[in-house]
Amino acid sequence: MLDDSRPIFLQIAELIEGDIVAGALAEEAQAPSTNEFAAFYRINPATAAKGINKLVDEGILYKKRGIGMFVATGARTRLLERRREEFFHDFVQPLTREARRLGISVDALTDMINRSNSDPVLTERSAGR
């Protein structure tokens, strides 16, 4: 789940963001504690805290003194907006690059995207995420 390419705290922050985007962690719901994250992912608690603090700084999570971390209202919308911006350069660019390398024309690529979109299994799976 965690890889070695980037700092773990960033990956932890992204995992939480992912849960919020997918709706697994609803707005105003309590997020797991630093220690729970550390124990679950078997990582250093300080690293987990750093990931959570990043989200606090960004206003995605907020702290209730003595109780814990909660998901901010509007967090999901803001994360979705950001993810959509990142989508182009994280997914579309590598896609077109690989297509070019394999000699897939833009039309053929569009066709593939349409086909993929109409595949019920894939559509459902992506909606469920």
């Binding site: 630093t34 220690n35 550390a38 124990a39 078997r42 250093n44």
Partner: peptide, 10 residues
Amino acid sequence: YDRLVEDYSL
């Protein structure tokens, strides 16, 4: 490892 992380957190 699990007990180490757990106890170190506390």
